[in-house]
């Protein structure tokens, strides 16, 4: 698959998921965790797919390298970095959300 298409699919999953997780953190933590973990799983599946393409692409690299293959490899790696960034972001906001939750609970005691 084209790296730009992969990037759009990643954004299509990551952005709504991050918004949903953020909204659920304020209402129900259980839903936030469920949505967060599902989206992380989806993003990691996408990452595994991209990683496959990257490893396959790099078997074709020789010396002197074909700049086009290198540029393509860089594009796919940038997409892979974006997928990991999105997954990491969702886990990050879930953890901060959990802190807010337990900190709030203690305040009400």
């Amino acid at each position: 698959m084209d790296p730009i298409a992969l990037a759009w699919i990643t954004a299509g999953i990551a952005v709504p998921a991050a918004v949903l997780v953020y909204v659920f953190i304020g209402t129900d933590m259980k839903w936030a965790v469920a949505t967060g973990l599902t989206s992380v799983l989806l993003l990691l599946t996408l990452f595994a797919y991209t990683a496959n393409i990257i490893t396959a692409l790099y078997t074709a690299v020789s010396w002197p390298p074909d700049p086009q293959i290198v540029q393509q490899g860089v594009m796919y790696q940038r997409v892979a970095a974006g997928q990991l960034a999105a997954a990491s972001f969702i886990v990050g906001i879930l953890a901060v959300g959990y802190y807010m939750e337990i900190s709030k609970k203690r305040g009400h005691e």
Partner: peptide, 10 residues
């Protein structure tokens, strides 16, 4: 934990 993941994400 949140900070580490958000930092990695950034």
């Amino acid at each position: 934990t949140g900070q580490v993941f958000l930092q990695i994400s950034l």
